[in-house]
Design a protein around this nucleic acid. Structure first.
Lengths: 187, 187
DNA sequence: TCATTTTTGTAGCGATTGCTACATTTGTAT
DNA sequence: ATACAAATGTAGCAATCGCTACAAAAATGA
């Protein structure tokens, strides 16, 4: 009875890793099973169905992301908007967090079509991002600080989209402009 | 000989419309054929293969988008950054352009995985957006104005992602914050 | 040891995928 | 009218899809 759940956890880890690398499109049962190094038959023994597999893997990804963010910058230090933005921009373009941003954009695209479980998970990630940002923004808490956090996250998301579509160079130009604007007006 | 190309064009129009409504995921040959009201057999008579169908439909979508943008605001009037941003934000959240934004985000997600022909078309759309913005920004042309345009497009893209993931309310809060920041620093 | 439960392999089902062979109908040029 | 090309319908292929029936093996409890 125990091995089943144990194997389930191992499969979740492996599949989450594979999905971070390959995205949401390569997700046939047999491909997922191969990533977890088990047979498709066993995958459906560990999980209810395909949706359960994907939801579990994406859930793992979101909690991993939250942990990673927490690890990088604990919540007890705060910074002004422009500094926080610059840190977030550097992080999300870096090797560690870039895969999470790609998944995040894919989830947003699916969420725009109201596809479950993507919409729910996408909301979870987005709100996690906003909260993470808000907690690290200096200044009094309240709707104003939360609005600032939402704006910063929208900027980061936009940079991810622009980088994917127009290329890294254009995205970096936009990032510099954003940083300079924020520095001038939200010091 | 003529009817073939004629039907091809009609199919492209119908399929482009369907893809704007349904996104990039519902694109089996038989689904696309149904959208064009022909048999799958005939679709492959009009087009080389499935990729050809999709590339043609997405091509139509990008040129339609460019035309729509041009129609809404001709290039001979310019505006300061904050005003242009507010107009663009209102447009891309509106009923006419919102479907294009959804497709645009989906394309960006595919482009992040280097999937063709999505990457190329995504770059086309993104550069079209940036150019459209740059041409309508007041002030002297040059790298500075282009950087401003890239930033505005990144902001618009980010709002689309945030709206899809965190919801319309959060996106609107972020949009207001962006407008106020731009107004203060790029008048 | 024996009975019961948990774990796993084999094999395949019906549906859908992209695509094609083949035949037939329709249009066109001479 | 006849020959030829273009257009279209029918039918089905091999591959893959998500999922399941069935039974053997392995672990567990008595």
């Amino acid at each position: 009875m125990k091995k089943r759940l144990q194997q389930r956890e191992r499969a979740i880890d492996a599949i989450a890793k594979a999905m971070l690398a390959d995205g949401l499109s390569k997700t046939s049962l047999r491909q997922l099973a191969a990533a977890a190094d088990v047979s498709d038959r066993m995958l459906l023994y560990y999980f209810e169905d395909k949706d359960d597999v994907i939801a579990a893997a994406l859930g793992k990804i979101t909690t991993d992301l939250a942990a990673e963010l927490e690890r990088i910058t604990p919540a007890n230090e705060t910074a002004p908007a422009h500094a926080l933005f610059e840190q977030a921009a550097k992080l999300t373009m870096g090797a560690t967090l870039a895969p999470y941003m790609r998944i995040s954009v894919e989830l947003a695209a699916a969420a725009a079509r109201n596809e479950e479980p993507f919409a729910t998970l996408s909301a979870q990630i987005a709100k996690g991002f906003v909260t993470w940002t808000e907690q690290r923004l200096s200044g009094p808490s309240g709707p104003q600080r939360r609005a600032l956090a939402a704006m910063i996250i929208a900027m980061i998301d936009g940079l991810a989209v622009l980088q994917a579509s127009a290329g890294k160079a254009t995205a970096e130009i936009a990032a510099r402009e954003m940083a300079s604007v924020l520095k001038a007006v939200r010091p």
